[in-house]
């Protein structure tokens, strides 16, 4: 399986200290919820942020995504807090 392009925004970006990264996914990481679980396992900082009770939203290829939505090699996956524009 190839890599996904991960993007981070707002306090998530600040707290992690990076705005993007490319990661090679194991084959079993094929959905949004599995990706989040896998990311939390490999990154204690992300794990503690996700476990702090603050909501994290996900977009896949620039569309809002839910837990069961597929993630594939070549996808752009963004993690961010609930939006506060307008």
């Amino acid at each position: 399986m190839g890599s996904v392009h991960l993007l981070y925004f707002a306090w998530l970006r600040e707290q992690l200290g990076r705005s993007e990264e490319r990661l090679d996914l194991p084959p079993e990481v094929d959905r949004v919820d599995r990706l989040l679980r896998w990311l939390r396992q490999r990154d204690p900082a992300l794990d503690s942020l996700a476990g702090s009770g603050r909501a994290i939203r996900v977009a896949v290829n620039q569309r809002f995504a839910r837990d069961g939505d597929p993630v594939r090699a070549g996808d752009e996956v963004a993690l961010f807090p609930p939006v506060t524009g307008g």
Binding site: F9, A59, F64, P81, V83, T84, G85, G86
Partner: peptide, 10 residues
């Protein structure tokens, strides 16, 4: 657009 557009305010 307040709930559906990816903008964040600090």
């Amino acid at each position: 657009l307040k709930t559906g557009a990816p903008f964040w305010k600090r």
